[in-house]
Amino acid sequence: MREIELTAVTVEFPGRVALRDLSVRLDQQRIAVIGANGSGKSTFARTLNGLVTPTSGEVRVHGVDAVRHARQLRRRVGFVFSNPDTQIIMPTVAEDVAFSLRGRGLSRAEIRERVADALARVGLTEYAEAPAHTLSGGQKQLLALCAVLIGEPSLVVADEPTAYLDAANSRRIARFLLDEMPQQLVLATHDLRLAARCEVALRFEDGRLVDHGDPGPVIARYERDQDQ
């Protein structure tokens, strides 16, 4: 089951409504979320991991109620933030990846093995013992992805994961997310080329879902509206 279902979801913050009466059902493998700053796309992304609790409405991700079972949901839904620096919790690369396996009842040997496999997968093996903050921006974002994927989530939510990266690192992260990663992906992004590579695009405006469907036409209408 890989269905994401939001029913009449409203999210209010002091002084503003971030999402308004959103109902949508998604089961595509690659889902793009586009819209201007403050449109509600990050809030939408955060409700999927239980980081934001809806003021009203229901969020179900892969059959799990995001409000009542947020802790259980976070084991299934990995979240990648835009700023790689704010995702590093432990001092070294290997320790930061291993941190995601806390409380899973694994032995030290199992953790070491899984960390080594995960680092090899994203090409960071040689940096395992390096202080995490000495990595480049692209490497830090790969580390963040690695720390998410080692938990074997069924869904990865990435909130503008290329925003802080140069062109080469953006391509590297995009290739990993869109071509190599087997998990379902929700990608909130300003990069319309990345959105175009997804199977469906959602467009938010002022907290409302104003358009969704095949990315090509959704993006074309978004660009046309921006030009006006």
Partner: peptide, 16 residues
């Protein structure tokens, strides 16, 4: 601001 972001990162990784 960093402390806020770090708190979100901890929550996202299952530490409440």
């Amino acid at each position: 601001k960093h402390a806020d972001d770090l708190a979100d990162a901890l929550t996202a990784r299952g530490i409440d």
